[in-house]
Amino acid sequence: MTHPGELISAYLDGELSRSEIDQLFGHLAGCGRCAVEMQELQAVRSAVRSLPLLELPLGLVPEADAEVVPLHRNRGFLVGAAAAIVAVVIAVAAMVTPSTAAISVEELNSRYGARASLDPAFGPAKVILPQLMDTLE
């Protein structure tokens, strides 16, 4: 059997049939150099897989753009989810925070007092004195 370099790579990629695997391991049992090569290749592949994934800038590799689409989809989903969470937080905060838009009774009193002063029954009894209050419960 010639040096089975391609079989080793194919094996590591999971592309060999049962009979090809038996044939490869039969060779490795008698060829120390091939066994060492397979161990080294396995180590290299493991090291490469442990590296972090880097996102390519768009357009750097035009052919790769198609592969980036799923990542964009994920990012869009995450952005949407984050926006929804922020909206919910704002809504809850807005509802539990008292509204600052309000009008005081004093302002209404002044309008009532002004109109009441045109009433035929206008007199001291019609005038509102909001601060003049002595409560005797």
Partner: peptide, 23 residues
């Protein structure tokens, strides 16, 4: 009271009459 207008003095002064009101 004079001229249809009232001036009331309490803790707050109120002037009212002829369609106006002011504290």
């Amino acid at each position: 009271q004079s001229g249809g207008s009232l001036h009331l003095s309490g803790e707050v002064e109120v002037v009212s009459g002829n369609g106006g009101w002011e504290s």
